[in-house]
Design a protein around this nucleic acid. Structure first.
Lengths: 200, 200, 200, 200
DNA sequence: AATGAATGAGCATTCATTCAT
DNA sequence: TATGAATGAATGCTCATTCAT
């Protein structure tokens, strides 16, 4: 038991720093956050941060990578058993806004802090983001093949349109002064989207 | 005459700094750009920048404000004479991507550099951006009243969906390794969008 | 006059930092000296140091380069009019210990702080130091040609022996607890040295 | 037996760390060498270093102390049976350069790394170095009494001159780009030196 | 004796901004 | 208006040392 706690304590420290960083970045912005702030929030010494991450920037990237990987994995499992491509996209869209809506700090980091550099945007594009877009595109193409979606549309472009719409919902939710649930927005987006891309 | 030249010289210097800053921000990112870089690029002394702008941040905001105001004004003129709300939206969308597609540096600043702070995102929301969304919403509502657009949709949400889709087109164009024209993307977006929101 | 003061003030700032650094390095050692200490001692802001020097290390190198160049120039002038090579070496040796003996801080930097890195030792060797050794060697060779010095000795080795002996005098003077004049040591060294290398 | 092995193992570890440190210091310089580097090179854990040495600085001092003590002991044995003071000094000088010439890493530590701090230079002076100089001085005085060396010279100064000359040979050997044997330099130094200090 | 994870003090350098000229 | 030398606050990262195991 003690050993298990110890083991958890060890790997838990990495997680702890990651969660602390998400809170701190969301609160102050990436550039205004000091590594010392993150360390204090995670209740570790400054130097300890560097036992788990090479740099402040790597922390930011790790937040993205880890969450993106989880989201994609969750999405794949969710649609695995479904047949209807439209329904699949609906589930993915809902999951997208559900996850961000469940953790405002994470949402701020994803919608705001991660966007501030061309450098990151390129890696962002290259890494998990491309895979996410790819998941959308493949599902759309499936629908095109099965005849439920218009074949005259570029699946690639269409998936960007869908992503852009969802992304804007999330960003607006972040900066909005009003409190509302993010996840239901998925329905509206999918209503317009599916209506726009359906065959016949 | 001398005074007029002087006036022009002065305002010309402000413009010159703004253009220089756009290039520098696009090249190095806002946080990595030094005021001294901007001054050198604009061919003025460091201190001169502060005769026209209160801070480095104000330069960034001015780039946004000025371009946003121009874009909205241009958009209003463009749709003034048009009757069809769908056509109006199409023109606005095309203008949106046309302007960004015509100036990659400006596009980088708009799509990347301006996104990196919650602080700015809020002001961004408060200022010209709200007005732009409002232009989209009013035009959509016009279409709802005239019966061409579905009345069961929230105009506010729908305008965000459209903006998000266009915004994503622009961002992808920035980070894409491939060279292509941005402006034609407006057609595809409008195709899906109008199909999705049209009544009947 | 005011302009002259101003001009001096400008270039004087560089000198001022150099002198301050010599004092600080001598007092605390190079590695324990903070740039902030140097700035305070020179009565300028921390950042001002970097208007005149690229790095802390460059300050150390500049102290060496500048003083070495001065010493060599002074040495050349001193021996210019002399005929006897033995007398020339005697004058150089005296100047060597005179200069170091006149400025204990400078001596500490030369004898101790500059020696602490192979990196510097190589540059040290490559730069002014080589020129100094060369001055000794040429003078010795002159004496060999004129028949006053033994021809069976390697001028290069002999000049290192002389330098080593003088260098050790200086180092011992630095670390000695007793107060004594450094410069007179030159006589003793030259006595043994000239006696050791004289022909016949 | 087990205990003896254990004892050997233990003291062997101390030696191992000392040798590792000599390599590491020679390679990177004292200030750029991390205790972790030394530990890795010695194949022990970081903390283990502190079971044998109080601090990083103590390691450096131990390298000096241990080698200096060995060198002096070896020197004493070497001259024990000799009669001629000149021959004694010759043997000591040769041993001096022989030892350094046999271990370049050790030579780098002795000639470069140990010189970088006034603090150490003082202790350096106080400790084994003084004893070494004293050995030279006593031998020289022996020669003065027996009439082979000039009586008008200060034995203390003369021993510093000899040390300085040998020291410079060693330092030059370290920083030289050319590969050559260090030990033969002793002959040349002794030639000049003995010629310079011999009576009549 | 040995380990190595954790600590936290310490610092060179940058750069937005000011202001005397 | 324009200059650019001077300022000084601000911080990511390193690494010698400790100590619980």
């Amino acid at each position: 038991m003690a050993r298990k706690t110890s083991r958890n304590g060890a790997s838990g420290k990495r997680e702890s720093i990651l969660r602390a960083a998400t809170r701190v970045f969301a609160r102050n912005g990436y550039f205004n956050s000091k590594v010392a702030d993150i360390a204090r929030e995670a209740d570790v010494a400054d130097g300890t941060v560097y036992l788990y991450f090479k740099s402040k920037e790597e922390i930011l990237h790790s937040i993205f990578d880890q969450n993106m990987a989880e989201a994609i994995a969750a999405g794949r499992i969710l649609i695995e058993k479904l047949k209807d491509p439209g329904e699949k996209l609906r589930r993915i869209a809902t999951l997208h806004l559900e996850r961000l809506g469940a953790d405002r700090d994470l949402a701020v980091v994803f919608q705001v802090e991660l966007r501030g550099s061309t450098k990151f945007m390129r890696e962002f594009s290259a890494a998990g983001f491309a895979e996410y877009l790819s998941l959308l595109r493949q599902t759309f193409e499936e629908g095109q093949r099965s005849g439920v979606f218009r074949k005259d549309l570029s699946a690639k472009l269409v998936s960007k349109i869908l992503f852009g719409a969802l992304d804007e919902m999330a960003t607006n939710w972040i900066i909005s002064k009003r409190k509302y649930k993010l996840e239901p927005m998925a329905e509206v987006v999918m209503d317009v989207f599916l209506n726009g891309v359906s065959a016949s």
